[in-house]
Design a protein around this nucleic acid. Structure first.
Lengths: 245, 245
DNA sequence: GCTCGGTGTTAATGAGCGTTAACACGTTTC
DNA sequence: GAAACGTGTTAACGCTCATTAACACCGAGC
């Protein structure tokens, strides 16, 4: 597995032929489906032709497996890191959710091909790989369900889970955005998706349009407005939430 | 359902072998992808085996084409009908959007397999069919963009278009909802999706939590709460919006 | 009662494609 | 400098699978 020339640095270095193949394969798979792409096309996309790929991968399935397992691992690891980081600094669930949303948006914008594959070609994997991917997916969902459930205690878990999946669908719509007019830029797209996701989750509280939190017994922490508002542009880290813990 | 042998009614009768094949093909295609399903499997799913399908369809491609063109036509026709109906009765854009959302939810829940295929296997179609499907998709999107744009005049068209696509992604998440715990029932799922979609669109106004639209010249009609709130269960037609025009 | 159109069946065909075999070339290393 | 290795190439193999051929049954209609 570790065929990096210099193993001294644990950095993600090595833009090797292998990585080049993975990137092009991801693009092609996302465009035309796993079965719709031949190995000759993948080879041609990286300058070599046909079976030369077998010097780097055991087979076509192995490429897909590595792509799907990789993206699942990165998604979950990134989400977990964000949850841990935000929690350890005393942030409330609203800020944690905001961080999860931002992280997922980054994934959806940077690796839109992989995000597409992620729920498209799962059935083509060997049982062991599919199990691993599903497990990682489940864990990732659990991160969200946990946070959203804490943010909306009145909603049942099934409802929260469904809402999380729905917001995934919303955020993963990035592949459909590039065709016609395209958004001004990445920043604007990210800001829009962020607003939409927050707006969707905000509707869980009930009526949705209620801007101020419950005027009765909200203990000045966990301001409900934060979870809905946030017209964010840049300024990634100021969630304006004064340490609910 | 309507499998009456009497052809007197112009109803969508005739649950013929042909329709049976289409239904099973849709299910299988959605499960394992167009290329991942063999004609023998489709045949077996309807009781006949293998090439017997060619008595009913010109080929495998023809089945997919009919499925995709059909769903696109029904989606657009349904959307257009809802827009025309609501508009002709003097409803405002908020109510029209609500009707569009409800209609799309019905599609997403009833024909989740087709909804999945809709943006998955488009590349497998012949050019003419693909063009037709894309055109219908575009027209359908345009219905939404038109209404949402009228509802949020401050948002640019590109932003509105992206938001519409994102909400499609949200509503089309139904295939991912059935696995783990599943929602209580269809009604609850529909209500949740409706709330989430309205919540997402509500965030377009800006901060999102602002319930009333322009506080200056709103003539007591067009209560903005309708566009966001709506905890609706049944009672499909009472959007409580007395002719904003 | 025989034909005919509709609907099936199984066997054969043929293309596409993933994979392997056999071979070639440059670079590193005793 | 020659063996070893990494990385390519092209040709061939073999399997899958959509499609077609050839044949069979069955209800309807003159």
């Amino acid at each position: 597995m570790n065929d990096a020339p210099t193993r001294t640095t644990p950095a993600p270095a090595a833009p090797t032929r292998r990585e080049q193949i993975l990137r092009e394969a991801a693009r092609l798979f996302a465009e035309r489906g796993f079965h719709g792409v031949g190995v000759d096309e993948i080879g041609a996309a990286v300058g070599i032709s046909g079976p030369g790929l077998y010097r780097h991968f055991a087979g076509k399935d192995a490429m897909l497996a590595e792509l799907l397992v990789g993206i699942s691992e990165r998604l979950f690891a990134g989400g977990q890191r964000r949850v841990v980081d935000a929690t350890s600094t005393g942030e409330g669930p609203a800020a944690v959710l905001g961080s999860l949303i931002d992280g997922h948006i980054d994934f959806a914008l940077d690796d839109r091909a992989l995000i597409t594959l992620h729920d498209r070609e799962l059935g083509q994997l060997r049982d062991s790989d599919r199990k691993r991917v599903r497990s990682l997916q489940r864990q990732y969902v659990e991160l969200w369900v946990d946070v959203v459930g804490r943010l909306h205690p009145d909603s049942g878990e099934a409802e929260v889970r469904a809402a999380v999946h729905a917001v995934f669908g919303l955020l993963n719509s990035t592949p459909h955005l590039g065709r016609p007019g395209a958004l001004p830029g990445r920043t604007a797209t990210a800001a829009l998706l962020r607003r939409l996701a927050h707006g969707a989750f905000a509707s869980l509280t009930d009526g949705g349009p209620a801007p101020a939190d419950t005027p009765a017994d909200t203990p000045a922490g966990t301001p409900a407005g934060t979870s809905a508002g946030r017209p964010g542009e840049e300024s990634g880290e100021e969630t304006a939430e004064p340490s609910a813990g």
